[in-house]
């Protein structure tokens, strides 16, 4: 395998793995938030802002993966 092929595989893995697992976490968080909003519509405002904050924190992990992937793609000859 040439060097650039390894870089390409590494970049693909970096973005793929860092998309899959935060997505699972975000799904869990959104599910819990939706359930609690359905149970208690009055608290929807508080839940929404907390949900947004936690989703953004999980999203950051994906973004770190994306940055690494861009860096690796830049190295492909």
């Amino acid at each position: 395998m040439t060097e650039s092929a390894i870089y390409a595989i590494a970049a693909a893995l970096a973005i793929a793995l860092s998309t899959v697992f935060p997505a699972l976490g975000q799904g869990k968080a959104a599910k819990a938030a939706l359930e609690s909003i359905a149970r208690q519509p009055d608290a929807a405002k508080d839940i929404r802002s907390t949900l947004l904050l936690s989703l953004a924190l999980m999203e950051a992990l994906t973004i770190y993966g994306l940055l690494i992937a861009f860096m690796l793609v830049g190295k492909i000859g």
Binding site: A56, E59, A60, I63, Y64, L66, L67, F70
Partner: peptide, 9 residues
């Protein structure tokens, strides 16, 4: 990093 990554991506 979060802001930069999102907008740059």
């Amino acid at each position: 990093l979060r802001l930069f990554g999102n907008i740059f991506g």
